[in-house]
Design a protein around this nucleic acid. Structure first.
Length: 687
RNA sequence: GGCGAGGUAGCUCAGCUGGUUAGAGCGCAGGAUUCAUAAUCCUGAGGUCGAGAGUUCAAGUCUCUCUCUCGCUACCA
């Protein structure tokens, strides 16, 4: 589909309702889709974006058991939580659904029956472990035993977490059901399998050649290398049959007589959720859903993480084609993974930046996270998020480049033109023309990059316009020109204001909040994308007051966020976050000495101060210390202490203090001396 | 073990079908400037393009070997 599609259906991977959303999810499948959809909407294209919670599968039942609750309670909780997290980051689906709904069950069942009728499945009877106490078949993960390779005694039926080798349940030594602890027995069960090997030929043509049923379908060159590479790897390796049903009681029941206790495999059930969601969206809007899934002029795009490539590029297309009525994806721009501070994100180790916590800690500052994630999005390879980088990008780029530019323009307009857009003479200089031409070409450059799923590049182009604006102001110096040539100064500001209004549009998908504030203050709200590239703000237009767009992220905030990550170790205290990293040289600059307190007296007129005479071994000096509320003079005489010796002398309450005695401050607000061990003599250097 | 994707300036990353002195943003150094959130602008330093071999007049860009990272997958290519 090289021509512009009549409409676009966008999906984002259904998040598994088994845990909260973190920035890896956002950067992988939700933010890129949101950017793409916001852009298309700004261009007034027909686009619908659906998503929803994936609420079935063994992991959820397992978790429910562990927590002593029901699967329903688990999925209800995360269904709410995930939606709040998304909306906190301005991730705005047209419709967010869930797979446990009655509509979805009904649709998935009818889809399954269609496939059954068309002979898409084979029925096979195999041996599977069964828990006699719980009277149910066991998913591989429900079986635990000793690993045959490394002897680790808590290996799961599908994988040993210790040595990493993948297993099948029969290999485990001494298998036990994790549900009841009973020894499982092998029983026969009949499941429906999808024989994928039948589909290799057309899949190859579809993926490699972009052709479906002999007709051009999409441009395979527009797909990412790692997506095609992984698909090729699968097909070249020969596709296997895969079970499309499971023996489980949580899921979409298999709608066949005698299939009690069987549900659809989550990977059959979940992608069908895209269709259910579209139907429910259409019902809500009172429009026809079918063109979005069945019309040849519709473009279908799946945003996912790289772990889902095979399901979206091979298994789901097979199911869709077998059923026959639905469109196959035109692109699956899967992102790679986002790492965090040098390590891969891990839910169980709490090594993550949780979306909901970010929203709570940085209230109203969703644009900042969106900007940073868009700048480092793992489009071609794994990327890395660090809080220091977050701070640098927000402060140096959003605040200094964008925020400051907007502020300059608004302040200048206020000073010289009473906050009204000055009229332009229409006589542009060469420099003006260059900026006008960049202003004109930027929307296309940004849009083109977005349509190629190159979001980082798109953002670069958009910010490039702002950078050019800063350069323009600095070089044209309207504040100077205003004194000699007011008409020229008006031209300069007029143009700078047009750049600002254009920036609000081209940055709109990335920074929806900022863009809205900006265009509202300029009086250019709701202009479509296609208006950009030209002058947008009319002369005489009054500007509204605009506060600072971006506050800087402080070192303390960075430290606080960094401290939150990682396992919450038992016995660990909740203390002040560590200060920002320092250098060895900085530490070396301090002269710490062992010393001894010779005498002490209260400082007159001060409740908290003791005046100490301290012996350093090479001199005796006076130190004023704020410890009088904790220690009497008698208590401290003879104490061995650590002295910060080269601290600049300072007069405190009339007494010159030449140094500082180090104390540990305890949780209850008390103080304890830091004392060198016996054998250290006054004057000894501490390093 | 197999397959796939990566390994490019201090950091985060671009480099399409091989072609003049390998780029951007940030950071760093020097300078300019003051309308502005000590912001902005200019200039500069910094790279054996993971290692080795090969093809070519010419390779970060093609081929082979090795190595590291990430992902998928399993006795099947």
């Amino acid at each position: 589909m090289s021509e512009q599609p009549a409409r676009t259906l966008v999906t984002s991977a259904l998040p598994y309702a088994n845990g909260p959303i973190h920035i890896g999810h956002i950067a992988g499948a939700y933010l890129p889709a949101d950017l793409y959809v916001r852009y298309l909407k700004s261009r007034k294209r027909d686009v619908v974006w659906v998503c929803g919670s994936d609420e079935h599968g063994a992991a959820i039942t397992l978790r429910a058991r562990k927590e002593g609750t029901t699967p329903r309670a688990i999925v209800d909780r995360y269904h709410e939580e995930m939606q709040a997290a998304f909306s906190g980051l301005d991730i705005e689906f047209d419709h967010y659904d869930r797979t446990s709904s009655a509509e979805h069950h009904a649709f998935a069942q009818s889809f399954f029956l269609d496939l059954l009728e068309k002979g898409a499945f084979t029925e096979e009877t195999r041996q599977q472990f069964y828990d006699p106490e719980e009277q149910q078949f066991l998913a591989d993960r429900y079986i635990q035993g000793a690993c045959p390779k490394c002897d680790h005694d808590k290996a799961f039926g599908d994988q040993c977490e210790k040595c990493g080798s993948a297993l099948s349940p029969e290999e485990l030594i001494g298998p036990k059901s994790t549900l009841s602890g009973a020894t499982p027995e092998l029983r026969e069960t009949t499941l429906w399998y999808l024989p994928m090997d039948r589909h290799e030929d057309w899949l190859r043509e579809y993926l490699e050649g972009g052709k479906l049923d002999g007709e051009a379908h999409h441009n395979p060159k527009s797909w990412k290398a790692h997506v095609l590479g992984q698909c090729r790897s699968w097909i070249d390796g020969g596709l296997q049959s895969r079970a499309m049903t499971r023996d489980l009681d949580w899921g979409v029941p298999v709608p066949v007589e005698g299939a009690d206790g069987k549900v659809l495999y989550v990977w059959l059930d979940a992608p069908l959720g895209y269709i259910t969601a579209t139907r429910n969206w259409a019902a809500k809007k009172g429009v026809d859903w079918e063109p979005y899934w069945k019309d040849k002029d519709t473009q279908l795009v799946h945003f996912i993480g790289k772990d889902n490539i095979v399901f979206h590029c091979i298994i789901f297309p097979i199911l869709l084609k077998e059923q026959g009525e639905y469109l196959l994806p035109h692109n699956v721009p899967a992102n790679e993974f986002m790492n965090l501070e040098g390590d891969k994100i891990s839910t169980s180790r709490n090594w993550a930046v949780w979306a909901s916590e970010y929203v709570r800690d940085f209230d109203g500052r969703s644009d900042e996270m969106r900007y940073v994630l868009a700048s480092i999005m793992p489009e071609q390879k794994d990327a890395e998020f660090t809080w220091e980088d977050f701070q640098a990008r927000v402060n140096n780029e959003l605040a200094d480049v964008l925020g400051n530019f907007v502020n300059r323009v608004f302040v200048l307009t206020g000073k010289f033109h009473d906050s009204k857009v000055p009229a332009a003479s229409g006589k542009w200089t060469e420099v003006d023309e260059a900026l006008l031409s960049l202003m004109k070409s930027t929307p296309e450059a940004v849009g083109d990059a977005i349509e190629r799923y190159r979001f980082r590049e798109a953002l670069q182009h958009a910010m490039g316009l702002v950078r050019a604006g800063n350069k323009y102001l600095t070089e044209e110096e309207p504040w100077k020109v205003a004194k000699t040539d007011p008409a020229r100064a008006a031209d300069i500001l007029h143009l700078a204001l047009q750049v600002t209004a254009n920036a609000a549009i081209v940055l709109g998908p990335f920074l929806p909040k900022t863009s809205a504030r900006l265009s509202k203050a300029l009086g250019t709200a709701d202009l479509p994308w296609d208006a950009a590239g030209a002058s947008l703000v009319p002369a005489g237009q009054p500007l509204a007051k605009l506060p600072i767009l971006f506050e800087k992220i402080t070192d303390e905030q960075v430290a606080e966020q960094q401290a939150k990550m990682g396992p919450e170790l038992e016995g660990m205290r909740d203390v002040e976050p560590e200060k920002a990293e320092t250098t060895f040289d900085d530490f070396q600059a301090m002269d710490l000495r062992a010393a001894e307190v010779m005498s002490a007296e209260k400082v007159k007129g001060a409740d908290k101060l003791l005046q100490l005479t301290v012996r350093t071994g090479y001199d005796e000096r006076t130190v004023v210390s704020g410890i009088a509320e904790h220690f009497s003079p008698e208590e401290v005489v003879g104490r061995r202490v650590v002295l910060l010796a080269n601290l600049a002398p300072r007069k405190i309450r009339g007494v010159v203090s030449q140094g500082m005695v180090l104390m540990a401050s305890t949780e209850d607000g008390g103080l304890r001396f830091v004392t060198p061990e016996e054998g250290a003599e006054p004057g000894d250097i501490i390093r």
